[in-house]
Structure formats: structure tokens, C-alpha cells
Design a protein around this nucleic acid. Structure first.
Length: 804
DNA sequence: AGCACGCCGACT
DNA sequence: GTCGGCGTGCTC
């Protein structure tokens, strides 16, 4: 009787997207469990790959057709993927058209990904001269892409002649951080004796021994070196002399720099109370109920989350809270940690690989009961969930834009079902999908209609910029907004200014011939960056100097157009010379921690005006901001995408909520060229319900989500014709399986036809029910794989965030 | 992905 | 005549 392990190997292709059978060696028979990582031989070379044990067949009858290979080694003492996450990975792979292995890797911290190394060593037959020239006095040589091409050729040839050996090494990227701890090995009395026997000149040693006499507790080596002022060589001598012992101790890297300030639950208003009770009831009864918590900014959603989480914890269960990356600020983390202290683990992109891995291990070992994090935290290995929260559920950053193209909200709902616990989706402006589901009672709607402390909503003014242009000279600031800014300056209050960056940035154009500088790799204009004095491509990173002479007509009349944050800042300094301005955009926040630093400066009143892009609209809470200005509300409206209105409405509503959160009333100015547009008019009154009704009618008429499902298929290739041809073939293939009710849009060139020297073509399928579509798309993916060697790439995006 | 096998052009 | 270029198929 042989035991057979089904292993999912780390080879992300369509053809290998199935478990492979391996014999379990006798030594591992009772040790191996599903969810462990193993090293297995794969392929006809001596190649070794990492794999995940998927299943173990106790007494399988081996297929006589194939002789099984045997598992090499086990990489984990215990499974690192539990049963739930194994099932989840299968579901993910099926719904997102991704490979199982890719899904497994996505769920785990990067530190657990395999690291592959190839080592070569000489055989006895290898001529001495070659051995010396290749290996010198080393016994092994690392074979990677850093080797010169001719060395690789030589190695390849020697390998064919069996003159060298190749060893494949698979290891984990993970490293457990260890700290060297130092402790006296002798009693203070004995150390005093040692002290007297030292030579007079041994000042450092004397200092060290004095310290050891006074402190018998273990101390980290670095700290000891710093406090006593001794070097590591002195410590080594001390160790050999038997005065002290050194031991490496495993530690967690601590991602929290700030201390926790304990907070107490706040008094709830009746609406909050109702919401908390409903969620708690579901937790208590173990019901997988889903809630849509609708509440304007300042209505106290976070307090509802925190009390629902507290209830789950009191029942001995755990909680998961997802927050969009951009609003995962120290403010939010601090609030959760303030309530739940050491029980909280945080997962976000600001952590280093090691910190992330350590937080993950704390969760996996059951040392953290509450997890707060961005998109990928939805895979946190909590085993006893009592409640899941998805804050700002409408945020598009919950959708991952490469494989697997999952939506964290969908994963959260899946896990809620698995754990039989409630999922709370919170937003001031829910996605149409979620709001529509609430309409059909798939979700239970919970409303927080009032701001806490009965604050009034800010007064919103819409400014018609076409009108404004007729009376004044060209400017980014209407006279109304400028006057309001001046008033804030006089009163010592703060203002937020948002520049809607999407599809709108500064470029240079020749006034003589109209030439616009384009990226050589992508079909897009280069953007002007004054800080580095260069032109940059936002898609591929290409950079070149600002031209002084037109490359086309050689004229000298180059002019800057459009509006970037830098240009606005410049104009603002001219208009309001006394104003202190902080600019926040991709350029000023690129460095780690810069984002937080700028926000703190603003919070500390080091500036009067915070000028920025979308990133200033989310999750900020500055009590002294009484004015919010949106400089260009409608740049997103012009985009040919079915979600353009929804995005604009959400953004305007959200940024308006930033004004006047304290006792001081807030004021909002929205500058636009489309003052009559419903998304803008309804954002003015914060009328989500009416926007929902209106937008749903349009979606219905256009057969858009949530009335129809959608799948976007993209083909890309360096050769434009190949991408287009592939697309045409796919359409033909799909038409044979699709019902007449399905609607195919395209194929069309991508919104930016060329990115990074690759041409993009795409196609959107809108459908209600197409039982054959899934299989057909998997088939297409399989066929595409065969061509991928020639550079053709196919991407399938189910429920895309946009059709562009 | 990455390895071996197999078929064609440019050399010793 | 062989070496090594890359196109093709397969991996328990």
C-alpha cells in the first residue's frame, strides 16, 4: 500500500494547472498533511520545484501507466494553508480565471514564495584548466542570469557532456528575525573577582563587567553595545572567557512605531445602536448575514464596526476589518489598536516583507484576534471569525488589477459564508452593485442618516467655470473660491483643495505647430514634472528633458498646458502670497512615510491649505478644515466608462464630507464645466438615494452592471496585428457558445492603445446567464498559453471595474 | 517556467 | 560533416 500525495506545483501555466501525484517516502508517511509546502522533482531534467500538498490518498491504486516520482523534502513542520484557504483558493481560481498556484501564492505573504537557485559543481572528469577558470578555488558556482552569456554557453555545453553536476535548490524567502541576547554567565560575586584580575589598561572590559554585575537580566547585544560603549569583539572575548552567554532569540519585527492610547467605547445614538444590535445578533447566532451599512461621513460608522468587533471578541471569536489602502492611515489603525491593544495585527503595503511575514505569523499562531488591513488582508489566516467588516466597500482599490483579479469584497462574503458570520459592508456612497443587492434583500440595509453631534451638512456651491471664464482671465480659481480661501486665511481656519487628476495633467505643446510630446513606448502624452525638470510617462516611467525647441517644427514657442498640482500651487502662491501650502501628490508622497508626515504637518497647523489629488479625499479627519474646494470636478465624467458618473458622485460626496466636522460649519466649492450634470447636482445635496435611482435607470437602459454581468478580455502583443487578430479569433470562438442575449462590445483598441511598447485590444461581454462561457474562456486561456511564447498575452477580467 | 528533443543554417 | 541556433512538447 503506497500513499500518494496530490501536489499543486509552482509552475503557473494552464497545462500544469492540476495536481500532480507523488509517492510519499516512508519517512514522511505520517508527517505530511495537506497545506504543507514540499519540494518535488518536476520535468525530465533534474529540476526541483516548490509545491503545495493538495490532498493525500491513503490507499490509492497507482496508475500503472505512469511511474510516480517521490516527494523530495517537506518545507513546513505544519500546514501553512488551512482547509478553509485551500477551498478558497479553488473557488478563487475558478471565478477569476487564474491558476490555483497563483491563488495560493496570493493568499500568503511574499516571504513564503519559493526562491530557486541553481548550483554547478565540477565532476572528476572536468579538465583541470576549465575547472580553475570557472570555479577558481570554489567548489560550487551559482548559475543565475548574472553570469555572462558566454559562460552560460560554456556551462550548457559542459552539462551536455556530463562534465559538470547541477544542483537545484529550493528555499523559502522567509527569514525569521533573530536577536542576539546576552546574559551574565557568572554570579555578581564571581564577576567581581574577575574584575579585580583585569589589567588596569582593560578599561572596556572593566566597564562591561561592571554592567554585568549590575544587570543580571538578558539584554540584546546591540543595546548592550550602545549603553556600555563596547564593540562586538570585546563581547566575543567575554564569551570565550566564560563571563557571559550569547543566544539567538526569535523576535517579531514591530511595525507599530507609536504607543497605543487606550480608548473606551463611545455612547451610541439610536441608529448606531440599532446597527450594532443587528450585527451582534448575527454574530451571536452564527448567521452568515450580510449588512450594508450606509452612513454619511461623520455618522459614526467606525464606532459601529468597533463595537461589533468587541462583541465578537467577547464571544471568543475573531474579527477582520478591511480598509482601502489609501485610508489605512495611522489615525484608523490607532483607533482600532486603542480599543483592542495587542490583539490587533495590521497588514498593509507599507510594511517590509519581513514585518508583513511576522504579522502574518502572529495571526496564524492565534496571537492576534483582530486584523486590520488593505485588500490582501482578506486572506488573513484567522480560523474563528465572528465578524468581517469591509469599510468604504465601493472603493475600486479592493479589486486587484493583476492575476488573480479578485475583489476583496467578494472574498469577504465567501469567508462570511464559510465561518457562518456576518459581513458588514460600509459606505457613504455604496457601489450600485451592493445597493441593488440590498434592494433585493440579499443584504440587510442599516442606515446612519445623521452625523454624530447633529452637525449640519456643509453648504455646497457649484461654480460654472464656463461662465467664470467669460468674465475673468483664465485661472484655476473662480472668484468665489478665491474669496472663500482668503476668508479662511483671515480667520486662521484651514482649507482642502482637490485636483481631480484622472485623465488630466500638464503637458507641453508647441504653439506654432500644435505638436505634443509623446512617450516613445506608450500612446500617451508625457507629463511635465517641474520638481525634476523632466517630462515623464505615467505608464512606463519613461523620462526625458523638457524640450526648449519643438522637435517637430524646430520652433521656440513651447507652452505648458493643462493643470498639474505643481502649476496650481504656483498660481496659488501668486494669488495668496501669505498662504502656507502643503502639496500632496504622487511626487511628494513617493518616499515611505511621506504621506503621514505631510498629513501630520497639516494636522499640526503648519499650513493653511492642503492641495492634493484624490488621496486627500479619503479618511482624513481635520477638525479645523472649514472649506473644501474641488478645482475640476468633471474630468472623470468625460471618460467613456459606465462607472464615470458613479465615481464622480462618490468622490464629490466624499470630499465634501471633509468640511466642517467640528462645531464650525463647512463650506464646499465645486468648480465644473458641467454644472447641470446629475452626478454633480446630486452630490451637491448629498442625495445618494436619488443618484442611485437615476443611475440604475441608465444602467438598465444600457444593459450595464448590476443588471448584466460583464467579462473583459484583453489581448496584447508587441505586434499590433497579432493582438488584433487574436481578438477577432476569440470573438468568433465566443459567438459559437454565447446565447443571442449576450452582448459583445468590441473588439476595440485599448483606451491607451500602446503601453510599454505593447499594443492592447479588448472586448467586453455583457450577459445575464451563459452556462458555457466559463469553460469557453478557460479554453481560450489554454490556447493562448501556447502562443504566449511568441509574446501574445491574454487577460480575462470578470466583473471589471471599468470597460476602458 | 524551464528542460530536452529535434530539425535547419554556418562554420572547422 | 558537426555545432548550436531556436521552435515544440511535456512535466506525476
Amino acid at each position: 500500500m503506497t500513499q500518494i500525495a496530490e501536489v499543486v506545483v509552482d509552475v503557473p501555466t494552464m497545462q500544469t494547472n492540476t495536481p500532480y501525484s507523488y509517492e510519499i517516502p516512508a519517512a514522511l508517511v505520517n508527517q505530511l498533511q495537506p497545506g504543507m509546502r514540499v519540494v518535488v522533482p518536476f520535468g525530465n531534467g533534474g529540476r526541483k520545484v516548490q509545491g503545495f500538498v493538495w490532498q493525500i490518498n491513503e490507499d490509492a491504486k497507482p496508475n500503472p501507466e505512469v511511474t510516480l516520482k517521490s516527494i523530495d523534502t517537506v518545507m513546513d513542520p505544519a500546514p501553512i494553508v488551512n482547509t478553509e484557504l485551500m477551498q478558497l483558493s479553488k473557488w478563487l481560481a475558478n471565478t477569476t480565471y487564474a491558476f490555483t498556484i497563483t491563488c495560493l501564492q496570493t493568499m500568503l505573504p511574499n516571504a513564503l514564495k519559493a526562491k530557486y537557485q541553481k548550483w554547478v559543481s565540477p565532476t572528476a572528469q572536468l579538465p583541470e584548466t576549465i575547472r580553475v577558470s570557472l570555479f577558481g578555488d570554489q567548489s560550487e558556482l551559482l548559475w543565475d542570469d548574472s553570469l555572462p552569456a558566454d559562460t552560460v554557453k560554456q556551462l550548457l555545453s559542459l552539462n551536455r557532456q556530463h562534465l559538470i553536476n547541477v544542483r537545484y535548490e529550493v528555499s523559502s524567502k522567509s527569514q525569521v528575525k533573530k536577536v542576539m541576547m546576552v546574559k551574565p554567565a557568572l554570579s555578581p560575586e564571581k564577576l567581581s573577582v574577575v574584575r579585580t584580575e583585569l589589567r588596569k589598561t582593560a578599561v572596556k572590559q572593566a566597564a562591561l563587567i561592571d554592567f554585568l554585575i549590575a544587570n543580571s537580566k538578558a539584554i540584546s547585544q546591540t543595546e548592550l553595545e550602545r549603553t556600555v560603549g563596547v564593540s562586538s569583539s570585546i563581547l566575543k572575548t567575554a564569551e570565550t572567557n566564560g563571563w557571559l552567554t550569547r543566544q539567538a532569540v526569535e523576535v517579531y519585527r514591530d511595525p507599530f512605531q507609536t504607543a497605543v492610547v487606550k480608548t473606551k467605547p463611545l455612547q451610541l445614538n439610536p441608529d448606531q445602536n440599532k446597527a450594532v444590535n443587528a450585527i451582534c445578533a448575527a454574530t451571536d447566532e452564527g448567521q452568515a448575514r450580510n449588512f450594508l451599512l450606509e452612513g454619511v461621513t461623520g455618522s459614526g460608522k467606525t464606532e459601529v464596526y468597533l463595537q461589533a468587533i468587541a462583541n465578537a471578541l467577547s464571544k471568543g471569536e475573531q474579527a477582520l476589518m478591511l480598509v482601502p489602502e489609501i485610508s489605512l492611515t495611522p489615525q484608523i489603525v490607532g483607533r482600532v489598536r486603542g480599543r483592542f491593544g495587542e490583539k490587533v495585527a495590521v497588514l498593509h503595503s507599507g510594511l517590509s516583507g519581513g514585518e508583513r511575514f511576522d504579522e502574518w505569523r502572529r495571526i496564524q499562531r492565534g496571537e492576534a484576534q483582530v486584523v486590520v488591513g488593505a485588500r490582501s488582508a482578506v486572506f488573513a489566516p484567522l480560523t474563528n471569525l465572528g465578524v468581517i467588516v469591509v469599510d468604504e466597500e465601493h472603493e475600486s482599490s479592493y479589486k486587484q488589477d493583476d492575476n488573480p483579479r479578485y475583489h476583496a469584497r467578494d472574498v469577504a462574503l465567501w469567508r462570511g459564508r464559510y465561518h457562518q458570520c456576518p459581513v458588514v459592508l460600509g459606505s457613504a456612497t455604496p457601489s450600485l452593485e451592493s445597493r441593488a443587492r440590498a434592494e433585493k434583500n440579499v443584504y440587510t440595509r442599516l442606515l446612519l442618516p445623521n452625523r454624530v453631534n447633529h452637525q449640519q451638512l456643509p453648504q455646497v456651491s457649484i461654480i460654472d467655470m464656463t461662465e467664470e471664464l467669460r468674465h475673468h482671465k483664465e485661472s484655476n480659481f473662480s472668484s468665489g473660491l478665491l474669496q472663500a480661501l482668503q476668508e479662511r486665511l483671515n480667520r486662521g481656519e484651514q482649507s482642502l483643495l482637490m485636483l481631480n487628476r484622472r485623465g488630466y495633467s500638464s503637458f507641453v505643446m508647441c504653439r506654432d505647430c500644435g505638436f505634443v510630446l509623446q512617450c516613445p513606448n506608450c500612446d500617451i502624452s508625457l507629463t511635465l514634472h517641474m520638481d525634476t525638470k523632466t517630462m515623464k510617462c505615467h505608464y512606463c516611467g519613461h523620462e526625458e528633458p523638457i524640450p526648449h525647441v519643438c522637435p517637430n517644427c524646430h520652433g521656440r514657442h513651447i507652452r505648458y498646458y493643462g493643470t498639474g498640482t505643481q502649476k496650481v500651487e504656483q498660481e496659488l502662491t501668486e494669488l495668496l502670497p501669505t498662504a502656507r501650502i502643503i502639496r500632496m501628490d504622487v511626487d511628494t508622497t513617493r518616499r515611505k512615510g511621506a504621506h503621514e508626515r505631510l498629513l501630520k504637518q497639516f494636522g499640526d497647523h503648519k499650513a493653511d491649505i492642503l492641495l492634493g489629488t484624490q488621496m486627500i479625499a479619503k479618511g482624513l479627519d481635520f477638525p479645523d478644515v472649514t472649506l473644501v474646494g474641488v478645482l475640476n470636478a468633471d474630468t472623470a465624467l468625460g471618460l467613456p466608462d459606465f462607472r464615470a458618473s458613479e465615481r464622480t458622485f462618490q468622490l464629490l460626496t466624499q470630499v465634501s464630507g471633509r468640511a466642517g466636522r467640528a462645531e464650525k460649519p463647512g463650506q464646499v466649492f465645486i468648480q465644473t464645466y458641467n454644472p447641470e450634470h446629475y452626478a454633480i447636482q446630486l452630490a451637491k445635496t448629498q442625495n445618494y438615494e436619488q443618484f442611485f435611482v437615476r443611475e440604475m435607470q441608465l444602467r438598465h437602459r444600457g444593459n450595464y452592471p448590476p443588471y448584466f454581468f460583464a467579462v473583459k478580455v484583453t489581448a496584447s502583443d508587441v505586434d499590433e496585428r497579432k493582438a488584433a487578430e487574436a481578438m477577432v479569433k476569440i470573438v468568433r470562438q465566443l459567438k459559437t457558445v454565447l446565447s443571442p442575449q449576450a452582448i459583445i462590445l468590441g473588439p476595440t483598441p485599448g483606451a491607451i492603445a500602446r503601453v510599454n511598447k505593447r499594443y492592447y485590444y479588448q472586448l467586453v461581454i455583457k450577459y445575464k446567464q451563459e452556462p458555457q462561457l466559463r469553460d469557453a474562456l478557460f479554453t481560450i486561456l489554454g490556447q493562448a498559453q501556447k502562443q504566449s511564447r511568441n509574446g501574445l498575452q491574454i487577460a480575462i477580467d470578470r466583473n471589471p471595474m471599468s470597460f476602458m
